Amino acid sequence: MARLILVLGLLFLWAPILLLAGYAFSADRIPFQWGGFSLRWFAALAENARVQEAALLSLSVATGAATLACLAGGLAGWALARGGRFCGRPLFGLLAGAPLVLPEVVMGLSLLLLFVLAQGAAETLLGWRLERGAGTIVLAHATLGLAYVAVLVQARLARLDPRLEEAAADLGAMPRVVFLTITLPQMVPSLVAGWLLAFTLSLDDVVLASFVSGPAGTTLPVLIFSSLRMGLTPEVNALGVVILVLVLAAVGVAGWVLRGRGGDPG
C-alpha cells in the first residue's frame, strides 16, 4: 500500500513535466497537439538570438551567485559549527537560515528596497548612477543560496571528529594550517554540493529576478514567464526540456558528491 501511494505521488508530480517533455518533440505548431516526432523546435530554439542571450546571462548569473553563496555560506557554516559560543550566535544562525523559510516575494521586495536605497545613496554621495541588472540579480540569488550552503557545511562539520583538529593543534600546527589541512578538505564535498544547489536555484528563479532586475537583466526564466503572456509556443516546450536536463544534471551531481565523497570522514 505504501509503495502504491509513493508511485501515485511521483506520478502526480512528474506527469505534467513528462507531458511537456513529450510535446517538445511534436512537429505540430500547436503546443499541446501531437503531430509526429520532430526536433524542429530544438533547432528553432538554437537559432533564437534572444533566447541565447537570456540563457548566457542566466548561466553567468548562476555561476557568479553560486560562487558568492559558496564563499559566504561556507564561512557562515564554519562559524556556526566551529565558532563556539559567541555574542549574537543565535541571531546570526537565525539570519543565516532565514532565506530557507522566508517567502521569495518578501525577500524580493526587501532586496528591491535595499537596492533602491543603495542607488540613491551612491548617486547622492558619490555621484555614481547605479542601475539594476545582472549584478543585483547575482547578489539576490547569492543571498538565497548561501543559506543552503551554510546548512550543508554546518551539517558536514558536525560529523567531523573535532579531535582531528585538536590533535593537529597539539602537534604545533597554527590555526591557519589546521584549517587548510584538516577542516577545509573535509568541507569540500559540502561546498561542491552547495555550489551546485545554489547554481540550480539561481538558474530557475523567477520571483527574485523579477523584483531586482532591470531592463538589461532579463534571465531565461523571466523571458519564459514573459512569453507565456503572449501565448505558449512549441519552442517554450523545447526550452523547458533543456532546462529540465540541466537542473537534473546539477542536482544529480550534487547528490553524488554528498553520497560518494561526503561519507563519514576517516
Rank of each mutant, 00 (worst) to 15 (best):
I5G: 14
L6Y: 12
L8C: 10
G9F: 07
L11N: 08
L19T: 13
G22Y: 05
A24Y: 04
A24P: 06
F25W: 14
F25E: 11
S26Q: 14
A27Y: 08
D28V: 08
G36M: 06
L39C: 05
W41A: 05
F42G: 04
A44W: 06
L45A: 02
L45P: 01
L45C: 02
E47D: 12
E53I: 11
A54I: 02
L56H: 14
L56Y: 15
L57M: 11
A62H: 01
G64F: 01
A66V: 05
G73N: 11
G74E: 10
A79S: 09
A79N: 09
A81T: 02
A81M: 00
C87G: 15
C87K: 15
G88K: 03
R89V: 04
R89D: 11
L91A: 15
F92T: 06
G93E: 12
P99M: 06
L100H: 02
V101K: 07
L102N: 05
E104C: 10
V105K: 00
V106N: 04
M107I: 11
G108M: 00
G108Y: 00
L109F: 05
S110G: 03
L112N: 03
V116T: 14
L117C: 15
A118S: 07
T124C: 14
L125W: 15
G127A: 08
W128D: 10
A134N: 07
G135H: 04
L139C: 05
H141M: 11
A142S: 08
L144A: 04
V149L: 04
L157Y: 04
A158L: 11
R159E: 14
P162L: 07
P162R: 06
A167E: 08
A167L: 07
A168Y: 07
L171E: 04
G172S: 10
G172P: 12
A173P: 01
V177G: 15
T183A: 13
Q186M: 15
V188D: 10
P189W: 06
L191Y: 06
A193H: 01
W195L: 01
L196H: 05
L196C: 05
A198Y: 00
A198K: 02
F199E: 03
T200N: 00
D205G: 00
V207P: 03
V207C: 07
F211E: 00
L223Q: 10
S226P: 13
M230G: 15
E235K: 02
N237C: 09
N237D: 10
G240E: 00
G240S: 03
V241R: 01
V241Y: 01
V242R: 04
L248A: 09
A249F: 13
A250V: 09
G252E: 00
G252T: 04
A254C: 03
A254H: 04
G260S: 12
G260K: 08
G260D: 11
G262I: 05
G263L: 10
G263H: 03
D264S: 15
